[in-house]
Design a protein around this nucleic acid. Structure first.
Length: 718
RNA sequence: GCGCUCUUAGCUCAGUUGGUUAGAGCGUUCGCCUCACACGCGAAAGGUCAAAGGUUCGAAUCCUUUAGAGCGCACCA
């Protein structure tokens, strides 16, 4: 028995060393597995892409969960002889990354991005992103992730950029991408548009004002934003509302707080007769629904009264004022004119930008969109239908299954996807202008071409991730071999952001699904069930956890009993429990090795009642394999834990003591072979969950039949 | 408003398609440094599976209703 077993297991000293040995072997790569004979050249494949972490800093426990689950399946498939690819990478995360760097610059130098300029800002972001990437890669390795580093990708590298340009051009040629004036979610703080999904609603107290535009105006109107009323072009009432029917069609002129307005009364079914006065002042330029109402009634839509800095643009006393200030001025004016009828306190949901916290100001802007309803030429289907079909048919299976309802619900309400952003970090829109001319795709030859200023929504490039990472648009061997991928494992919180976009992009570009199964994990919360966040200071850093308890312990704590789709609570206590388990394995090995030093490990020696233990273990192996085949790692882990501790240690080891000390040599030999066999198989099955400690022990076993446990054969009887 | 999920031992959660006395971890109580392990061993207490009704030979598991909690989407004039 090696001396190392005389001391308790030390994960901190062991884990980095073991990882380095794996990395050196090259066996994270399926090509190398084939070359070294641990996978057959024609073996079935199992492939997965790593959801690329944002290069905004460092990983949190949610990432650790993702890594643990994905590595479990990866290692399992690899041990079962699949040509297994788990492909790593990072995401440039446009807005998120830029806003982190911008904040830092603001703090350190009190400068805005406009003070610094596009080129310089990009340089700084790239430096930051590259440092983040290094940190993140270190964390991925510390968690034991068996990722194929030879294929590492980045959403903004040249190969991925080419994929982005290619698909943009294809979509544009198919008429699916268009540029149009629409109401967008403008974030005045971040100075960019954001998508509907990047909005967070915050409930705040607000005041609801009931007023008339003028003394002779027949209908009182309720609003929480009096300052926008200078942009009104109509008043909408419900078609069935008896109170106002006689006025529908009438038009009125008024001067509202120094601003001349022209208001028409229209009937629209969108109006809720029970809210306020049942009459809506229609402000097309600054409200999504009002824009649509104006659209239906052919009213002016471009009556803009607020600019990108959330300041008023109308002449008179409001000019140049911030909206909040303007609101007070309008209320004061209404009061002095005797037009204000009522002020009520209400609770209101305010749209804010997820990244910057800025209050969203809906503005009409010229933006790039993807049309999700238009039929794709030659396919007789819209992008929306492409997203719907594979999930509906079961070609893509979402786990837990109930999430497909959420998915359908979201798609049904999906509107055209605004893909342009007014930030600098990201894929620049591949459209080139010269005078009246515009060219989509690669930069045309000749002088004087200017590229579109905007960048693409970061999800545009991450939507390509399963195939851009495999070399698309080139017809690479990787693409043919590993795509569609088998499993996509990610958090349910990005089902729409990312999973749906991947299905859209892949179905569109390749006409196939990006993955066959979607495994959605839940959120990792703190011991009290709160979300982990910087402001609460309850974050756990996976590196700290690994340093304290070992990555194996952290992985087990994250995996055992953690059903997909369900949030979990994490605590140091829990992780500590699995550190103890790693030590338990260590001591089991110590016992077995010290009692079998001169023994023959051949399983053929096992006889009599000892065979029953093998039968039991075979049954467990079958169950665990079945669980893993069906992505029930949480059950498999629990069963193995229970077996190792309460069967192997508590029962088998205990009953072995008298046999090993006894005089019956045949029984002793059988028992010794049994112990070695069971320990060997248990370690194999635990390896996907606790790769480090199992590898470290297995290296000292006489049953060792491969260079690494990582590529040893999975012990299941077929 | 539309939709989804959850409610199982003191706490945190499992329980795969309905099938024998409902499980685990932590915690608690009692006894143990027994030559693998005190990061441990042995034993014990603890649950009308939210409530009511239904389907069934049989329900924590399926259906209906109710109550409470959480989440998503929409609205938010």
């Amino acid at each position: 028995m090696p001396d190392k077993f005389l001391k308790p297991y030390d994960p901190v000293a062991t884990e980095p060393r073991v990882y380095a040995e794996w990395a050196k072997s090259g066996l994270f790569s399926p090509d190398e597995c084939v070359k070294q004979g641990v996978a057959k050249p024609d073996a079935p494949t199992f492939s997965m892409v790593l959801p690329p972490p944002n290069v905004t800093g460092r990983l949190h426990m949610g990432h650790a969960l993702m890594l643990a689950v994905e590595d479990v399946f990866t290692r399992y498939k690899r041990m079962r002889g699949f040509r297994t690819l788990w492909l790593p990478g990072t995401d440039h995360a446009a807005i998120a990354t830029q806003s982190v760097v911008e904040k830092q610059i603001k703090k350190d130098e009190d400068k805005s991005r406009h003070d610094i300029g596009r080129e310089e800002l990009l340089k700084r972001i790239e430096t930051f992103a590259s440092a983040s990437r290094d940190t993140i890669i270190g964390q991925l390795k510390a968690m034991g992730a068996s990722l194929d580093w030879s294929r590492e990708a980045f959403t903004l590298d040249e190969s991925r950029s080419r994929a982005v340009r290619t698909i943009f051009k294809k979509m544009s040629d198919d008429g699916l991408i268009y540029r149009g004036l629409r109401i967008v979610n403008w974030d005045p703080k971040g100075q960019t548009t954001i998508s509907d999904d990047e909005i967070v609603y915050e409930e705040r107290p607000a005041k609801l004002y009931t007023f008339r535009y003028a003394k002779d105006f027949p209908i009182p109107v309720a609003t929480t934003r009096p300052e926008t009323k200078v942009g009104d072009v109509a008043v909408a009432v419900h078609p069935d509302d008896a109170r106002y029917q006689e006025y529908v069609g009438n038009e009125y002129d008024a001067v509202f707080c120094d601003v001349p307005i022209h208001v028409k009364i229209v009937a629209d079914k969108e109006v809720d007769p029970a809210f306020g006065t049942g009459a809506v002042g229609v402000t097309p330029a600054h409200s999504m629904t009002d824009w649509d109402i104006a659209d239906r009634h052919l009213l002016t839509q471009d009556r803009s009264v607020i600019n990108e800095y959330a300041k008023m643009t109308v002449p008179g006393r409001l000019e140049g004022k911030k909206t909040a200030e303007a609101r007070e001025l309008v209320v004061a004016w209404l009061t002095s004119e005797g037009l204000l009828e009522k002020t009520e306190d209400i609770r209101q949901n305010i749209a804010t930008a997820e990244r910057t916290g800025g209050v969203i100001e809906p503005l009409p802007k010229l933006q790039w969109f993807i049309d999700v309803n238009k039929k794709i030429p030659g396919r007789d289907r819209s992008l929306k239908e492409l997203m719907l079909e594979p999930v509906r048919s079961g070609e893509i299976r979402i786990l837990p299954e109930y999430f497909d309802k959420t998915y359908f619900h979201w798609i049904e309400h999906l509107r055209d996807w605004c893909i342009s952003r007014q930030i600098w970090y990201g894929h620049r829109i591949p459209v080139w202008y010269k005078g009246e001319e515009a060219v989509v795709g690669e930069k045309p030859d000749g002088e004087g071409w200017v590229q579109d200023e905007d960048t693409l929504d970061t999800w545009f490039s991450s939507g390509l991730w399963t195939f851009s990472t495999l070399g698309w648009p080139d017809e690479t061997i990787d693409l043919g071999t590993y795509h569609p991928t088998d499993l996509l494992e990610t958090g349910y919180d990005i089902l729409f952001f990312w999973v749906a976009r991947m299905i859209l992009m892949t179905e569109y570009a390749l006409g196939v699904v990006p993955f066959k199964t979607v495994y959605l994990h839940g959120l990792v919360r703190d011991a009290q069930g709160r979300k982990m966040s910087k402001s609460l200071g309850n974050n756990m850093d996976p590196l700290d956890v690994a340093a304290k308890f070992g990555a194996d312990a952290a992985r087990m704590a994250l995996v055992v009993g953690n059903t997909p789709g369900t949030d979990m609570r994490m605590s140091e206590e829990k992780i500590k429990g699995y550190k103890h388990f790693a030590n338990k394995l260590w001591n089991i090995a110590r016992f077995v090795l010290s009692n079998t030093e001169e023994a023959d490990p051949s399983a053929a020696l096992i006889e009599g009642r000892d065979r029953d233990h093998i039968v039991k273990l075979d049954a467990l192996a079958k169950e665990v394999s079945d669980d893993l085949d069906n992505f029930r790692g949480h059950l498999a882990a629990e069963k193995l834990y229970h077996y190792a501790w309460h069967e192997l240690a508590d029962v088998i080891l205990e009953e072995s003591k008298p046999i090993l000390a006894g005089a019956d040599h045949k029984a002793k030999a059988s028992r010794q072979a049994l112990l070695l066999t069971i320990l060997d198989r248990t370690l194999r099955m635990l390896h996907p969950f606790m790769p480090f400690v199992t590898e470290e022990i297995w290296q000292s076993l006489p049953t060792k039949d491969a260079p690494h446990l990582m590529v040893a054969r999975w012990p299941v009887v077929e």
